[in-house]
Structures are given as C-alpha cells and as structure tokens.
Simulated assay, not measured.
Amino acid sequence: MSSKNIQRTEPGASEERAQKEELNQKIKEQKIVVDELSNLKKNRRVYTQQPNSNIFFLADKGETLSSCKQDLDNMRKEYQDI
C-alpha cells in the first residue's frame, strides 16, 4: 500500500493565504519606500502622486515620511490579524 499525503484545506484557506502573501508583498514595498525617504538628503524634493491619476505634486518630506510609516504600521497590524 502506498501512502499519499493529501492535504485537506478549509474553504477559503487558499484565498486567505493569497491575501496574506499579497499583504506581505505590500509591506516589503512600503519598507523600501520608508527607507528611501529616510535616507534622502535634507534638501531633496519629494513628490506625491494623486490617487487615480498621473499627476505628481511637491510634498513635505517629513509629512510624507510619517504618513508612509503610519501606513506601514497599519499594514503590519492587519497582517498580524490575519
């Protein structure tokens, strides 16, 4: 007799796993954004993109960095809740 390792998954488990992987990817991207912003020289300009558009506006570096850090923290909390 051959034994087969059959994995039984609950309904929605694969969806949850895919959601978790996608969120993990977004967290990695956000970490890079925070690192890049925190390593910019003092006199460098930062631009933010308007939602659903290709228009960029000059933004304050400190405000942008703090909002990116806050987004990263929110993503990490959401990831832990999953």
Rank of each mutant, 00 (worst) to 15 (best):
E21A: 05
E36V: 10
I32G: 10
K26M: 06
G12H: 00
T48H: 05
N54W: 11
K42G: 15
S14N: 08
E21P: 07
E21C: 03
F56S: 10
N24P: 07
L58N: 13
Q25T: 10
N52G: 12
T48V: 15
Q49C: 15
F56V: 09
Q19Y: 11
E22Q: 09
K20D: 04
Q19P: 04
E15F: 02
K31E: 15
V34D: 05
E36R: 10
K28H: 11
K26P: 09
E29D: 11
I27C: 04
L40H: 12
L37P: 12
A18F: 01
N54Q: 13
N39E: 13
N39I: 04
G12F: 03
R44C: 08
I27E: 09
E21M: 06
N54A: 10
E22A: 05
E16V: 00
G12Y: 02
T48G: 11
N54D: 14
K42R: 15
F56N: 11
L58D: 11
R17I: 10
P51T: 00
Q50D: 15
L58A: 13
P51M: 00
K28I: 00
A18H: 02
I32R: 00
E16H: 04
N24F: 06
E21L: 02
V33D: 01
K41P: 12
I32S: 10
Q50N: 15
R17Y: 10
Q19W: 09
P51E: 06
E16A: 02
E16F: 03
R17P: 07
R45L: 04
S53D: 14
K42Y: 14
R17C: 06
N52A: 12
